[in-house]
Write a protein that binds this DNA or RNA. Structure first.
Lengths: 238, 238
DNA sequence: TGGAAATTATAGTATTACTATCTATCACGC
DNA sequence: GCGTGATAGATAGTAATACTATAATTTCCA
């Protein structure tokens, strides 16, 4: 399957730094990595989303913060929804790249699955090569807002355009490892998508609705990894 | 634990029918079950949410449909967000009532858990006693929109007011059965909340992002039940 | 039947999510 | 150094949303 890293998103440059991922061109009007203004939109888009949440976030507020105009922001993204989709797509692409990096050259499928689950359930760490991206903030945005990319009427049309490709590819590639371990297991992709969603949700619950989970701050990441790793290995045990 | 049904929501009357559930009074301004207009708001609120989705849903559109005015709708619900929260709260209360009904007098904890998972993952069926409620439509609304009740900035305040009590109580009561089966299992509530969320999500994926799951229409309900029941029993096996 | 409560009609506000147009700036090749 | 084309900024405008306010009318029921 994707062991050799074929088909994995290519690393190029974001934030004046050295690494970025290919994000589908349909997600933006003009590539935000191609100009200082675009990078500003990404950088402060993440920070503002983290601060005030998707519902209260507007291009007007973002424009004020980076001292540009609403119209200029619209030159890069058709809507705040597509900005969010861009960010999540970037995130999943990066996640797949990280998993690939962590698991290549590892023989045992079990070990690879364990590493992949670790990457999926631990927060992404600050990356020196992308100085403009606050990874911790992006991760919080993902936890709170990523479901909103697909829980809306436009899903089907957007899916037809391939805008969810990075998420689907990520789930598929982890599911492939499960199939390697137990080809008889009937729900590999469902299991992965459940784990990915649950990882975010449990951390959200830990912070906002703590009686819905045993995952507790400040060790939420660690116990989420433990909970979900155990869940997966028990589920696929022959 | 809740075996005897203590603390389970009481059945009273909705829709001119015989059964309703106590819904927290903080969720509405004026009890919608107390008048014809209120019942109309609930009935067509569900149908309209199902038809156009939460984002496009407005009180103006609802008012037009039931031939009343925006202001009249606002007399019952402070916002569309609180209407959605009312509907989900009603749903979880009813679910708890159904689980209690299905599992009381059953000795084996395993059997009770299996029955509870069945209730949680199968769609609610049309109920003769609530002729004004289209259960199938409500279920679709829940699948697509229920996460939006808590994935927003107001969660903490609303949680402090107890507006998520019915969801928390439901998860807790199912988790109690897990504890009965395996007191050593570390994540009973997390497992239940994961299953409840995943049940909705997998069905949503089956319809809109089918490559994220093996659950397939038109047998989505059956295979979701199978997938999640297996997942739970494997997870809690000693 | 009278008075209170519920509902309707009408109007208004601030904000949102855009779209349009025109001008200023700036890098570039010649 | 000059023109050109692309980018960004300034400004304005629109339809819809999510309410709030107030007065008039209808309904209820004691």
């Amino acid at each position: 399957m994707s062991r050799a890293g074929a088909d994995v998103p290519v690393a190029t440059a974001l934030g004046g730094g050295r690494i970025t991922l290919q994000v589908d061109e349909k997600l933006f009007v003009k590539d935000p990595t191609s100009s200082a203004l675009g990078l500003n939109i990404i950088e402060h888009g993440i920070l503002l989303l983290d601060e005030i949440g998707y519902e209260d976030f507007t291009f007007r507020k973002l424009a004020e913060r980076i001292e540009t105009t609403e119209a200029s922001v619209y030159r890069y993204f058709r809507s705040k929804h597509l900005l969010l989709l861009y960010l999540t797509s970037y995130y999943w692409g990066w996640m797949e790249y990280r998993i690939d990096l962590a698991t290549r050259n590892i023989e045992s499928a079990e070990a690879r699955l364990r590493l992949a689950l670790r990457e999926l359930t631990q927060p992404i760490t600050n990356d020196e090569s992308t100085p403009r991206i606050d990874e911790a903030a992006l991760y919080r945005v993902l936890i709170s807002e990523s479901s909103k990319t697909y829980l809306q009427r436009g899903v089907d049309a957007e899916n037809r355009e391939g805008l969810f490709r990075s998420y689907k590819r990520l789930c598929r590639s982890v599911a492939d490892v499960i199939v390697e371990i137990n080809p008889a297991y009937e729900y590999p992709v469902a299991l992965v998508s459940t784990v990915v969603e649950s990882s975010h949700r449990q951390k959200y619950f830990a912070e906002h609705l703590p009686s819905l989970t045993e995952v507790k701050l400040p060790t939420a990441h660690r116990s989420t990894t433990a909970f979900l790793t155990e869940l997966v290995f028990q589920a696929i045990a022959r």
